[in-house]
Design a protein around this nucleic acid. Sequence first.
DNA 1: TACGATAAACTTTTT
DNA 2: GTTTATCGTA
Length: 731
Amino acid sequence: MTLNLDELNPQQRAAVEATEGPILVIAGAGSGKTRVITTRIIHLCGKGVSPYQILAMTFTNKAAMEMRHRIGMTLERNTNDLTISTFHSFCARFLRREIGYLDRDRGFAIFDTQDQTTCLKRVIRNLGLDEKSNPVAHFRNKFSYLKNTGDLETEPEFDLDRQIFQAYRKELLAQNALDFDDLLLFTCRILTEFDECRQRYQSRFQYIMVDEYQDTNKIQARLIRLLLNDKNNLCVVGDEDQSIYGWRGAEIQNILDFEKHYPGAQTFKLEQNYRSTQRILDYANKAIAYNEQRKPKKLWTASKGGPPISIRDEYSGMSEAENIVQAIIERHEKKNIPYNEFAILFRSNFLSRSLEEMFRRYQLPYQLIGGLKFYDRKEIKDLLTYMRIVVNPKDWTSFVRAIGVPTRGIGVKSQDKLYAIYSDGYTLPEMFDHAIREKVLSGKAHKSLVEFRALYRRLAAKANEEAPEIWLESVIKELDYLSYLEKQDEATAEYRVENINELLGAMVELRSQGVETLAQFMDFSALVSDQDELEDDRPKVNMMTVHAAKGLEFDSVFVMGLEDGLFPNQRALAENSNAVEEERRLFYVAVTRARKRLYLSYARQRQTYGSTVANPKSRFLIAPGEDTDSDNQSLFTRSSRTQRKAPIGELHEQVNRMKEQLARRDVDIDFGALDKNPRLKSGDVVRHAKFGQGTVSATRGTGELTTVTVYFPGKGTKTLVAKMAKLQKVF
DNA sequence: TACGATAAACTTTTT
DNA sequence: GTTTATCGTA
């Protein structure tokens, strides 16, 4: 074993060597956090601790794999005994073993957001409620937040909410399904209620480490507390300046009050940054200093100077995208920086659209992280659905999907009849038998169901005999699924078949990593995170949300869409200063991803929803000073250079350029928007006769049709036709 | 019941 | 500008 502690700086080394009792490591961006955790584990093993006794929680499965790999390389031994995983994966594995304590079946399904939605719709329908006035997404978010922030038995306050909540939980129970939040909740429940079980795990895990502690929520903190024995050998690592998950219940207090929660805790601060240039760090430090809820901290680096930060004032979303593309090409060609060393970050997923278009036009290779996940794609979900009904014969949600792919003439009406039987407590195969025996369905539908039952029996019989990918191939054949895809949409069929091949390939590959059964594969596919899908070994430019970029770093980083209303986004602006502070932390995370070059940009107007919106530049952008350069020649195309010299010519030049583009492609651009300056702009305060004073969040369209979206405190956000609403500008 | 066409609603951020 | 909901028709 080779472990050289001399390679660490004094603070890192102290954090590694402090093995006993509660330890808090405040690790600024790029301060070698991952290195400290891995080295610490190696150091523990060197001291004779068995890997079996160590538990480390990471934020992504990928990070877990990488750490395991590094540790294995150094220790020169197998690391299977070491538990490194995400909270959710840990709980899924825990529950597959231990859920019997709650009298539940180990074959439970894990419902993702889509499944949750389907299930909740069924619940709302069952209760005879109207879907329109009871939007599913609202309840989904509400229940999720509750499960993550409440105590184990917390229920909603309002009657209707509670009624739906209870019905939802009952439905999940009937379908033997757990949603993402249940994974944590049920694990905590078992560890709380069953002393024998808790003691087993407490005596096993002697050392626990948690990464990204600033993003843990109440239930996660509780879980850690339950797993800890009286030695309290807990080491948490995090940075309150990078807390960006408040909206899903993360409690920044977990890290701020760590010393209070764990008396006698030792604290180490890692402030030396090994990632970015001094320029980038200075900029980040200045930006985050505007936040009030933080402990003062200053990152520094040994690498002085660095190129200035580029801040670009763009005319439109299009020119923003185009200039990013050109800056990448230039840096790639001149400095030989590989494409995968570039990242373009944005606040919201929809901003990727204009980028993608531009990348395709310039034929630059890129990968978009987030958005639709691989395992959420239709063709993948369709096939996995069959896997799920076989593994969990109570999964009604998946059954509904399976019966409709391909269509079999069993529609909503027949489904309702079948559901009536199912909801008496039958499993799916029992329900088939019953419905067929009693001839519940009419002619054609009945015949279809008989066929479906036969198919189900064939697939179920083979499920435990064959390797997962062989089994799935037989599903594809039985369904004649490839012809189905062809029939559905010729244009996308080829691409979808490629994805299916990738799925089969992944199943083979995962078998070597211990994913051998259909159930294990289901867990894996349910819990992949965005970052897990990142291919970092291909020369492709990365595009992702700032959230998805957490923990990553790149040579060059572009942060786009820096406009009030987008970043910080409208909701945060409408809420309170806490929300804006979280947005600012998000901005801090974004800029600290960059090693050498940082490019910030905003557009005076951009297309959203198909209409034009104009937002002022983001409040997060600090006025250009010695660290920044808003006049960086090499980055600008000729036309935008002209733009700065002669602002009056700007419009015509841009219009002509866009018209040219328009001629080349069949895209509609609203030129009307260029002629008039909307009088009101985002951030203006206006008075409305009925609603009182409010803040403008966005303006859309031009002339007669201009609409203004205004947030009125206590009354919500209203979209008004400017001309009709007679808004008075206050300031 | 399936499937097409048309209208409405929609965008934070994620496991 | 895109996805989902609803309606009418085969």
